[in-house]
Design a protein around this nucleic acid. Structure first.
Lengths: 330, 330
DNA sequence: CGTGGTAATGACACCGTTGTCTTGACAGAT
DNA sequence: ATCTGTCAAGACAACGGTGTCATTACCACG
């Protein structure tokens, strides 16, 4: 910048003004500086600028796994909102690891991100309190904040699971397998609750043999289903509480040749779910909407909105495609 | 930091040493400083640190669309390599937009990323030359650099498309539709070349009616296929040169009730391709490997490797799942 | 006991910008 | 002709750290 100033014959501050497109610089000087910038291939040092001006134009996004369509879709929505402000997104995957969350939050705070979108792996977020007091803006996504008060955008998991289960019950199913994720994961727990509530509402009792939790990957889901079906009285329907697990379940049913005999409903839509045979009935969460809401709320805070933190619930939607409409076997 | 130093009764520099875990600080002082850091909720300002030390611990990744499984998988692989160094990844989606590439590259360079992974939207990259001379490290992914010399990790698209087409020819197909992406996109062009080469190798001539380019989304692919099949002598096989387009093609065949009559091979694997009915035969590119290679090369450069830039070709692999093994109708 | 080497700490300038304040010039009002 | 206000430009001191070098203390060695 010093060189640019020298070449253009102006002061440092004037170059700064031109680079930042500030008003009140005469046209000939703007031209001279611009020319000097180009001649010297000057690249404005955003980091130094941030140091002085106290904002970075970066938002952080800590998601579970950017290669999963849910996180990836969310990230994309965040990015689109950020881009309108010429902001940029710093992402990382947490993989449900508690330590990694702590470390990455620390890293991003150290980098002075203007705001943070967090899909937490932990269930106690009080460690964020000092940073919140210091002005950090955080919006939780998909999972509730615990031990602190901050904005959140959540899917109504209980209702979604309730609807899915009720839908299966409505077809006459009485033995419905629930393939759940780790019960320590809040959303998984809520889906479990929704499943149970639907059974109760239908006057049924929970059969513990029909609940298998701790399923994370499609491989695990596949094996779990195969195990359960290797029994004298297998279920007639399956509710898989996660996209990867639903995929595993579909794969298992396929291997068993039961795709058209056993009903299957998944939580969380994904590309191609409609192309399976039969099409996979799912509870869909609108990722694009969730991401946009979270980003909008974050930017409202950055812009100075100091209203009380809110909990925004996005309703999920049951999408019927065939697999969930298979009646129980006679 | 000043406060921490005061509370611990040491100099600024000593706090800096402790925070950065530098050697040659006595244990009691480390303890004192650490305690002061915690008492004051001190957060090290990474930006200020970068300013002096001239590296940021950030790598940039400009991909086409982080919500597409290809870009998302790549991003995830990059992130995993970066994390081992406690580095962080700044991402953005280019959506094949030339202007956005320019702008985002400028932004990331301004932010002084330590290195850049670029899946370019443009076909002339000479605009990067000044930055390269100034020390910027860039590794191209999926598409070749033009007008500059730098490392790249590419998929052998010509061979992949050649193999796919030859596979279909081997089943006896003679009328093979090629649904291609925008021909201006390098990879799409190469796949077109591979398709043509396979036809030539089989002693056949290219039928221009059987080549439809410019297909980007699954919707476009679906419609294009429907149009082509609405003719007196439709093709007996389809080669879709992109994952989204293959999905659209599969959807269209499904609508036409031809899923089991018309052969289909896609380029680019994606989750669930095996679960379609029939399973989708694809040319698979190993995204994880590509991402890891690109990141490893980038870090080798960052670590001072000054050997000549290399062009790394990753061979794609034909994965047979059924849809590509359907013989032509009698 | 003097010498040289190493470990632990601190002083200070500098990294590349921008916020704040000052100055000078000029236009319009009186 | 004087006063006031606005615009253009610059001087200077931060922003929050770290690289470099200097200093001191201590130890081993011949």
């Amino acid at each position: 910048m010093r060189d640019v100033a020298a070449l253009a014959g102006v002061s440092l501050k004037t170059v700064s003004r031109v680079v930042n497109r500030e008003p009140n610089v005469s046209a000939p000087i703007v031209a001279k500086v611009t020319r000097a910038v180009e001649r010297l291939n000057y690249r404005h040092n955003v980091g130094a600028s941030n140091l002085r001006s106290r904002r970075t134009g970066v938002i952080g996004a800590l998601l579970q796994d950017v290669s999963n369509s849910f996180s990836a879709g969310l990230l994309r929505a965040l990015e689109d909102v950020a881009r309108q402000r010429r902001h940029v997104v710093l992402t990382a995957s947490l993989d449900e690891e508690v330590e990694r969350e702590r470390q990455l939050v620390g890293d991003l705070v150290g980098r002075r991100v203007d705001g943070l979108i967090l899909m937490p792996a932990t269930r106690d977020h009080s460690y964020l309190a000092p940073d919140l007091r210091a002005g950090l803006r955080v919006v939780f996504v998909d999972r509730e904040p615990h031990g602190i008060v901050t904005d959140s955008v959540l899917v109504d998991n209980v209702t979604g699971a309730f609807d899915a289960t009720r839908h299966l019950l409505g077809q006459g199913h009485r033995r419905i397998l629930h393939l759940g994720d780790l019960d320590t994961i809040e959303t998984a727990h809520q889906r479990q609750l929704g499943y149970e509530a639907a059974l109760r509402a239908a006057g049924m009792r929970l059969d513990p043999d029909l609940v298998v939790t701790g399923q994370r990957t499609s491989e695990m889901g596949e094996e779990a289903l195969l195990r359960v079906f290797d029994s004298p009285s297998p279920p007639t329907a399956v509710f898989a509480s996660r996209n990867t697990v639903a995929i595993g379940a579909a794969r298992a049913l396929r291997r068993l040749g039961l795709s058209h005999q056993i009903a299957l409903v998944g939580f969380d839509d994904f590309p191609l779910a409609d192309l399976l045979e039969p099409g996979l009935t799912v509870v869909r969460q609108d990722v694009g909407l969730i991401g946009r809401m979270a980003a909008d709320i974050l930017y409202a805070r950055i812009d100075g909105d100091t209203s009380p933190a809110e909990r925004h619930l996005v309703p999920p939607k049951l999408v019927l495609r065939g697999s969930g409409e298979i009646p129980p076997r006679a």
